[in-house]
Design a protein around this nucleic acid. Structure first.
Length: 514
RNA sequence: GCUCCGGUAGUAUAGCCCGGUCAAGUAUUCCGGCCUUUCGAGCCGGAGACGCGGGUUCAAAUCCCGCCCGGAGCACCA
């Protein structure tokens, strides 16, 4: 070894184990005393894979720099994107499950007075104004790069109007506070953007604070203020927010603040999954999906039920990184990570989907078959099944899967895993007959006999597996499965990984992947 | 339409800022082999990509221009 080290050090270097993929460094991280990131969902739906990018990136960066990760509920629209009480908790649970527990939490509907305070300040400084133009009229003006009639009114007038907003003199749609920007900005969408508006609070009470406030801040106002007020150093969000950054920068200038570093990553989609909140909500309402954890959904709840581990999701997101281009993930990527995590950890069982009966004759003796829970970890123990052939023909009955019918031609030799080899004599749609052929594995190997799994009839229990497309695969599991508990993960050999959902006289499992 | 982004194998990603060591690395996928009583894991081998066209240069995935394609924003939503 010494000699190798001296003479060919480079050959040793090459053997270095592949290192974990890491996130690229955060821009200007050294300019901040502490890195602070935030995840800011609207609690109007459960979280899904599409949110994973924001969550994992924010959390991971905070950890990487020993910083803080903040959860901020952005629930300032009681009308169009109405928050729903149950989702606050569901989001907290999802975050915890993902291993991205926030260090701090804020709810914007608790912070309305703060927003009012800054609204007034901006009004007083002449950096904002109360606009009572009809939306259409305002749009025409701003498109022509002209100020609307309200913009240049004296500050006192705006303060009075603000008071009228608060008192409910102005009804919904009649007044809005705008932040002054550059009316000649090339993008009309950033010109004098709206910051707060009046909501008909009798009609649309807020689920948390009811009718307490009739003036609610809009996204750019609340978010812009909070990012500074909470000391966020790095904003990591989807690129749909890019123009919002330009809008908010005007407000930061008015307030004399420095805008945080911002990373706008691209959209994340996964092939074949609906990642739109509205589609998910609609599907639930119409009864198309059975719940938030319907296996057809890519919600965290559904992934959890299927046995996709949070670690796999994290790895996937870190692997994708924070780049600005959109990505269309394939499930295989996620499955591959999950499989690597699960394979060594979970025990293995025989599950026979779509069972058919197998009769084996001429079994010469009683076999005691021991099936290890995991072939690489014998210390975990084993299950034992006694195959006792009946007199006088040495017959025994097994369940085998219809899926193996394709390799069961008359005359073929197959091996019942861990037991013995048989020769197929008759094949029908729902039953197969065979004769004992030989015992040793070496013999099976010599004739290249396929290995199939089996369950002895009588030492079985019914089992149904809910597949990712929502269909159910009925089958029979080996008796040892009765000791499984909900949430256990298993590998059903030659079938796939699954999460045990319920165990009674029958097992229900959710399929994860192959 | 306007204002912005982006385009490396089936998928995802590294490299692009600061041209050469990139006849392009990694993971996954697929195919073969070994091993193993799974169609799993592991090990070995193989397949597979710089959107297109020009230009600059001794040299371009990397710089410049044009085109094509994809995406986002253009709400009194977040």
């Amino acid at each position: 070894m010494h000699i190798v080290k001296e003479k060919w050090p480079e050959t040793l270097a090459k053997e270095k184990v592949e290192e974990e993929k890491r996130l690229p460094p955060l821009p200007n991280a050294d300019q901040y005393r502490e890195i602070v990131t935030r995840f800011s969902p609207n609690p109007d739906c459960v979280l899904h894979l599409g949110s994973a990018r924001a969550i994992v990136l924010c959390h991971e960066y905070a950890r990487m720099y020993n910083g803080r990760f903040i959860l901020r509920f952005e629930d300032t629209d009681p009308k169009l994107k109405r928050p729903v009480l149950e989702f606050y908790d569901r989001i907290r649970e999802d975050l915890e499950w993902l291993g991205c527990k926030p260090d701090e939490e804020y709810i914007q509907s608790d912070r309305v007075p703060i927003y009012y305070e800054y609204a007034e300040k901006l009004l007083k400084n002449g950096n904002a104004y109360v606009c009572i133009c009809k939306p259409q009229a305002f749009r025409e003006k701003v498109l022509a790069q002209k100020p609307c009639p309200c913009r240049d009114l004296p500050r006192e007038e705006h303060l009075e109007r603000w008071d009228r907003m608060l008192k409910g003199v102005y009804k919904e749609g009649e007044a809005v506070i705008r932040i002054k920007t550059d009316l000649t900005h090339p993008n009309p969408a950033v010109r004098d953007w709206p910051a707060l508006r009046v909501i008909d609070i009798e009609k649309y009470p807020h689920p948390r604070v009811g009718t307490k406030y009739r003036v609610w801040p809009l996204y750019n106002f609340a978010c812009g203020l909070d990012d500074h007020l909470m000391g966020i150093t790095h904003i990591i969000r989807g690129k749909e927010h890019l123009t919002n950054m330009f809008r908010q920068e005007y407000m930061y200038r008015h307030l004399g603040w420095r805008y945080p570093e911002a990373i706008h990553y691209g959209r994340l989609k996964i092939k074949g999954a609906h990642l739109s909140k509205s589609k998910i909500v609609q599907g639930i309402r119409e009864g198309l999906y059975k719940g938030w954890d319907d296996p057809r959904l890519a919600t965290f709840a559904a992934l959890r039920r299927r046995g996709i581990t949070p670690e796999a999701i994290k790895k996937l997101i870190i692997d994708v990184g924070p780049k600005t281009s959109d990505v269309v993930l394939s499930w295989e990527n996620l499955y591959a990570y999950n499989r690597k995590i699960l394979d060594p950890k979970v025990n293995r069982y025989f599950f026979v989907p779509n069972p058919i009966q197998l009769l084996v004759r001429h079994i010469p003796r009683t076999f005691t078959v021991r099936l290890r829970l995991h072939p690489e970890y014998p210390e975990r123990g084993f299950k034992e099944y006694v195959v006792r052939p009946s007199e006088p023909d040495g017959e025994a009955l097994f369940w085998i899967s219809k899926m193996d019918l394709k390799i069961l031609a008359v005359g073929a030799i197959v091996r019942l895993m861990e037991a013995f080899n048989i020769k197929i004599e008759r094949v029908e749609a729902y039953s197969v007959e065979a004769a004992f052929e030989s015992e040793s594995y070496e013999e099976a190997k010599r004739v290249e006999a396929p290995l199939i799994h089996w369950v002895p009839i009588g030492m079985d229990m019914p089992c149904q597996v809910v597949m990712p497309d929502g269909t159910i695969t009925e089958g029979i599991a080996e008796e040892a499965c009765k000791d499984l508990k909900p949430n256990d993960m298993v590998q059903f050999e030659r079938f796939g990984f699954a999460r045990i959902d319920a165990v009674n006289t029958k097992i229900t499992a959710y399929y994860a992947h192959k």
